[in-house]
Amino acid sequence: MTQQDLADRIGVTRQTVNAIELGKYSPSLEVAFRIAAVFGVGLDQVFQYEKPAR
């Protein structure tokens, strides 16, 4: 699946999908759930919390 395909299915731009992948943008819960739903997995399988480095 391309970034554009995923972007179309969750209702954001391709650049936003790219920013999420690169860790430059944390999506809203709604978009996060949509991404998980597209892949048919739970939220915790797509996103993991990383403590910011001090």
């Binding site: 209702g11 731009t13 650049q15 936003t16």
Partner: peptide, 11 residues
């Protein structure tokens, strides 16, 4: 296509 699309949440 980008020009017609409304702003998404990040934008």
């Amino acid at each position: 296509r980008d020009a017609r699309a409304p702003k998404d949440e990040r934008e």
